[in-house]
């Protein structure tokens, strides 16, 4: 039997659930409420520039923090014994088994003005901080929720680096700093790039986190889009246009990043 035929169900699945909605989004983005072709949805978007820049800024900060925590964690974890690695992985994955909303609600009660965190500060005699309903709270929520997506790809790449390649670098005169700079880091880049992708994309489009932890004070793109579809303004045409623009910006970001990474190692998942 032709083995190529086996992919048919997946191709159909993708056509129905990926391609068709995408076409729908494009169609909506270029039509007006009356159904005619228009650029209006895009020209009116400039007023949301603030939301765009805020969304990208918060997502970039959250991704950077995830990378700053996730890379060293993966690097040192990969050096540990198999047992320690397994246990650590379970702890990294554990929060993901809990409901996303539940996790975020938990952070609400932690970050509240009279929440766990501030009570801890007070106990230590430190001044309390107003965190809930600020951008900081949103970033904390993003980092907490998306950190595993940074750790997993980086860890699995570093873990697979052949021990003898590292020994070869040492053998050729590289001290531990140079081994890291010239061998381990370049070899782990594919993991870093897919980690960044997997954190940045959900972070830039989230609306639950900003709603719960940002208290509606700061609108992100996700909130804006959600409002067009489910909110009182109800304008799926504008919502589609915003989605489309966001998608294109994200794609450009990823393409630039992959190009940057290509010098070191082959292309990475987009």
């Amino acid at each position: 039997m032709n083995k190529k035929g086996l992919s048919t169900p997946y191709v159909i699945w993708m056509a129905i659930f990926v391609v068709a909605p995408l076409i729908l989004v494009v169609v909506y983005a270029f039509t007006s409420k009356s159904g005619g072709f228009t650029f209006e949805n895009f020209s009116g978007m400039l007023q949301y520039a603030g939301i765009f820049s805020n969304s990208f800024l918060l997502a970039i900060i959250a991704t950077a923090i995830c990378l700053a925590i996730g890379y060293p964690l993966s690097y040192f974890l990969a050096k540990e014994s198999a047992t320690i690695r397994k246990v650590a992985m379970i702890f990294i994955m554990l929060p993901m088994w809990m409901n996303f909303l539940l996790r975020t609600y938990a952070w609400m009660s932690i970050l509240e003005d009279t929440g766990l965190f501030n009570r801890l500060l007070a106990l230590l005699g430190l001044p309390t901080l107003h965190i809930i309903n600020t951008n900081a709270a949103v970033v904390i929520g993003m980092v907490y929720n998306f950190l595993p997506f940074m750790i997993l790809p980086i860890f699995s790449v570093i873990e697979k680096i052949d021990r003898s390649v590292i020994e070869a670098a040492q053998d050729l005169g590289a001290n531990s700093v140079m081994v890291f700079k010239r061998v381990i880091f370049p070899l782990s880049l594919p993991g870093v790039l897919s980690g960044i992708t997997m954190v940045f994309i959900p972070a830039v489009s989230t609306f639950v986190i900003s709603k719960l932890l940002g208290g509606g004070m700061t609108w992100l793109l996700g909130d804006l889009i959600e409002n067009q579809f489910l909110g009182n303004v109800y304008n799926p045409h504008l919502g589609s246009a915003i989605s489309l623009v966001m998608m294109i910006i994200v794609m450009i970001c990823m393409a630039v990043m992959n190009r940057f990474g290509e010098g070191e190692e082959g292309a990475v998942v987009l």
Partner: peptide, 8 residues
Amino acid sequence: QKYALFSH
């Protein structure tokens, strides 16, 4: 033994 070349 397995050459350990730098694949990048």
